[in-house]
């Protein structure tokens, strides 16, 4: 599915990709042949600080600050691998609210979600794309915590600006999503 999202990008046109994970060499290498602007917001490394904040407004301010630093160029592709599992409903809602002003009709959000297993690694693992845009998992935490197992309908309720374009249940129990903006939001 990620291959499909990448193959839709035009080598001749400027493309804007937002990676909400820790930067990996594979991601940079994959988009290097494109006229690409790659925005990186390393949310996995911000999660411990977010978790330590008990006040909702404080968490909101922390997230807003991360996004304020970035320009408002419309997005073509958002990489959200495994991250949403580690955010609460309010945080996911706020995250998409912050991203929505940069949506255009062609924007796609690619996400991996825990679906089948009640447990998941205690910290987000890394996904590394290869040159063919195939994703490979690495650095999986052996410690496990309870998985939120967000259902597709629930995600649609939490993220009203987005609708799933494709979903795939993977053999490892993860659900792979490709979201697109709903017409009213584009």
């Amino acid at each position: 599915m990620f291959e499909q999202a990448v193959s839709g990008l035009d080598l001749e046109q400027r493309v804007v990709v937002l990676d909400l994970g820790t930067i990996r060499s594979g991601t940079v290498d994959l988009f290097a042949p494109y006229r690409c602007r790659l925005d990186i917001i390393d949310l996995p490394n911000t999660l411990p600080a977010l978790a330590a904040m008990e006040d909702h407004d404080e968490r909101r301010a922390c997230l807003s600050k991360l996004f304020d630093a970035h320009a408002r160029e419309p997005l073509d592709l958002i990489l959200c691998w495994n991250l949403l599992n580690y955010l609460g409903r309010d945080e996911i809602h706020q995250l998409i609210e912050l991203l929505a002003p940069r949506f255009q009709t062609t924007t796609r959000l690619h996400a991996m979600m825990e679906y089948a297993s009640p447990l998941m690694p205690a910290t987000p693992g890394h996904w590394i794309p290869d040159a063919n845009a195939r994703l490979h998992a690495s650095q999986v935490d052996e410690e496990q915590i309870e998985s939120p197992r967000y259902k597709p309908k629930e995600l649609e309720r939490i993220m009203p600006q987005l609708a799933p374009e494709r979903t795939v249940l993977l053999g490892n129990g993860l659900q792979e999503y490709l979201f697109r903006p709903k017409p009213a939001q584009s």
Binding site: R24, V28, Y34, R37, L38, I41
Partner: peptide
């Protein structure tokens, strides 16, 4: 041209568009 070694920590924007 941008090259990155895994382990590097980065927050921000990488613009690889030579027409930027």
């Amino acid at each position: 041209r941008v090259m990155l070694e895994d382990g590097a920590r980065f927050n921000g924007t990488i613009d690889m568009d030579p027409e930027a």
